[in-house]
């Protein structure tokens, strides 16, 4: 599991992850919106359980993409290296 996750972080396709996140997000939103119109027990329970789990999963995938981005980013130091002083030479 750990190795699989590390592999995902190192080589995972960000755009594919985002496509999955968007599809899951749309399903989650549909379930959550359904309960706003039909307040029977099935829509309300679906919204508050499955809908929210799917929505959370979708947001989690987005955060994963952000983490992957941060891991692959090359940061330049904000301060230039201090010039060596004369007496050090």
């Amino acid at each position: 599991m750990n190795r699989w996750f590390k592999k995902l972080l190192d080589r995972g396709s960000r755009s594919r992850l985002l496509v999955v996140a968007c599809v899951l997000g749309l399903i989650g939103l549909a379930l959550m919106s359904w309960s706003l119109f039909d307040q029977g027990w099935i829509p309300v329970m679906m919204a508050m359980s499955i809908g929210q789990v799917i929505g959370t999963l979708s947001f989690g995938l987005f955060l994963l993409v952000v983490i992957i981005d941060l891991r692959r980013a090359t940061f330049r130091p904000s301060m230039p290296a201090q010039a060596s002083r004369k007496e050090d030479r």
């Binding site: 996140a21 968007c22 997000g25 989650g28 939103l29 959550m32 919106s33 309960s35 706003l36 307040q39 309300v44 919204a47 508050m48 809908g51 929210q52 929505g55 979708s58 947001f59 995938l61 987005f62």
Partner: peptide, 19 residues
């Protein structure tokens, strides 16, 4: 971040209250 995070979280929170 808006479409996958902030706005769905708002929907879920209000959905909980309404539910």
């Amino acid at each position: 971040a808006l479409g996958l995070g902030v706005l769905p979280i708002m929907t879920a929170l209000i959905g909980n209250v309404e539910g």
